[in-house]
Simulated assay, not measured.
Amino acid sequence: MAVEVEIWTDINCPFCYLGKRRFEEALDAFPHRDQVRVVHKSFELDPTLPKDLSAPVTPHIAEKYGISEAQAAANERGLGAQAEAMGLTYQTSGRDFGNSFDMHRLLHFALEQGEQEAMLDALYAANFAAEQALFGDTERLVRVAVDAGFEETAVRAVLDDPNAYADAVRADEAEAARLGARGVPFFVLDRKYGVSGAQPAEVFAQVLEKAWSDHAPELEIVADADACGPDGCALPERN
């Protein structure tokens, strides 16, 4: 038996970056860790952004939430402090944002290769931990994927074909809407329990245990005697 965890995320989302680490902390300590299957799903925070957009994060946050740029910068520093406490690198200034659709297509490509975690970690690191801008630059995206161990020709083939994995991304997003997800990260365990946001590791530990306990335990044979099977019946002992 296994617990399936689906996680909707967006590369633009700092709480997805933090939430992934907190979930991993809980998962690493979970006694049945080897029987948990994790799949990452696509969710664009703003699918209307132009494909080639690369713009500074801080002014964008200030405008979006109606706060000053100083307040937005303070928020970024706060996120950086949270990341540092978990051992994550976080660039608190100079980051960009943009359209993440191609990144989600690459995540579906990586899922087919059995290496989705490697792609996601590379994209998060490129956005949150590196000084160089990430969005709106196909060559930068290719380098990130190749450095993560993916074959360059295959990566370019995906990015050069706007239809490659596009339906898979849109299907994930439609699925999130049906499940009632209004933001990310959004965690769904066995299509029965939902967790919204970058919760503490303790919360993830509790819901993992709850999902696991819902599965029927494996049958334990407490007594065994002569019986019949496909090969016949046990012969009685002769005196």
Rank of each mutant, 00 (worst) to 15 (best):
7 I>K: 00
13 C>T: 01
13 C>R: 01
13 C>E: 03
14 P>H: 05
16 C>G: 03
18 L>A: 03
18 L>F: 06
27 L>R: 02
27 L>P: 09
29 A>S: 10
29 A>Q: 05
34 D>K: 08
37 R>H: 08
42 S>D: 01
51 K>Y: 12
61 I>S: 04
61 I>Y: 03
66 G>N: 05
69 E>C: 03
72 A>I: 02
81 A>I: 12
83 A>G: 02
83 A>C: 03
86 M>A: 05
94 G>P: 02
101 F>V: 05
101 F>P: 07
111 L>P: 07
112 E>M: 13
114 G>F: 01
116 Q>E: 05
126 A>L: 05
129 A>D: 03
131 E>W: 09
138 T>M: 13
139 E>W: 04
143 R>W: 03
143 R>N: 12
149 G>M: 00
150 F>P: 05
158 V>H: 07
164 A>P: 13
166 A>R: 15
167 D>R: 15
169 V>N: 03
172 D>F: 02
172 D>Q: 01
175 E>L: 14
176 A>Y: 00
178 R>W: 06
179 L>V: 12
179 L>R: 09
180 G>R: 02
180 G>N: 04
185 P>G: 02
194 G>T: 12
195 V>G: 03
196 S>G: 01
201 A>N: 04
204 F>Q: 01
205 A>D: 09
209 E>D: 14
211 A>C: 07
211 A>S: 07
215 H>I: 15
216 A>S: 15
216 A>C: 13
217 P>D: 11
219 L>Y: 14
225 A>M: 15
228 C>G: 01
230 P>A: 02
232 G>W: 02
236 P>V: 02
236 P>N: 01
238 R>G: 13
